[in-house]
């Protein structure tokens, strides 16, 4: 029980505090390092087959988990029809397999190309291991603890929400099987290490590009009052 208190009662807060404080601090003090060091310039072909499925899979999984967390009642109701539940399960499993495929390929790629060793740090290796662990435990849950999209919103989401209301409901986690418990611990570990790794690039996803002016012109001095400010292209 004491381990449960540490792992599911205390650790989530440590993880989220680290995430918030260190992310903001790193962005403010060392914005230079906030990106994912791209290796496409050194090896482009295998990257395509690894990076694209990995990212697509991870994005689907991330938003799937997030939607379940935000609107559990609606998701539960949606999954009440067997066909819809099946669709959710198949979508999740496919995304998981895509992420697994991508992650494994990216790891093999890093290991086999001598040029990539020059741009792979120990932190990168640890992060790959952690991501693989998370994907494998997730797939394990999907395969052997069937209909996760139904029970996730009934059991885990209440726990996660209880964490956010600062009254962690440990009873739910105590009833969980080992693999789902590992998956939850892995998730909070990822959140904890997030600001120390290249995962930081998620926070600077270039969404403002969708609405900013295409051409940027910066003036050193203030322009005269009423001076035209036309930018060159739509």
């Amino acid at each position: 029980m004491t381990t449960d208190v540490l792992l599911f009662g205390a650790f989530p807060y440590v993880a989220m505090a680290l995430f918030l404080v260190v992310s903001i601090q790193r962005y403010r003090k060392n914005a230079y390092t906030v990106s994912s060091l791209s290796s496409q310039f050194l090896e482009a072909k295998q990257l395509f087959w690894g990076s694209v499925p990995f990212h697509l899979g991870i994005l689907v999984l991330f938003f799937g988990h997030l939607i379940g967390f935000l609107i559990p009642r609606q998701v539960a109701l949606f999954g009440a029809v067997p066909l819809r539940l099946l669709i959710m399960e198949v979508t999740g499993l496919t995304a998981g397999l895509l992420a697994l495929w991508g992650c494994v390929l990216l790891m093999l790629r890093r290991m086999t190309h001598p040029r990539l060793k020059a741009v792979t740090s120990p932190v990168d290796k640890a992060l790959y291991a952690l991501l693989l662990f998370q994907i494998v435990t997730g797939l394990w849950v999907a395969l052997f603890y069937r209909w996760g999209s139904a029970w996730y919103v009934q059991t885990l989401v209440p726990y996660l929400r209880s964490v956010f209301t600062f009254q962690p409901n440990l009873a739910v986690m105590a009833e969980m099987k080992l693999i789902p418990r590992l998956h939850v611990i892995g998730a909070f570990t990822l959140i904890a290490v997030f600001p120390f790794t290249r995962l930081m690039h998620v926070l600077v996803a270039p969404l403002p590009y969708l609405w900013r002016r295409p051409q940027l012109v910066l003036w050193n001095r203030a322009r005269a009052e009423g001076a035209p400010r036309s930018e060159t292209l739509r």
């Binding site: 403002p208 940027l216 012109v217 910066l218």
Partner: peptide, 8 residues
């Protein structure tokens, strides 16, 4: 990212 710009 808007990292590139033209100096006015």
């Amino acid at each position: 990212s808007g990292a590139l710009y033209k100096r006015g």
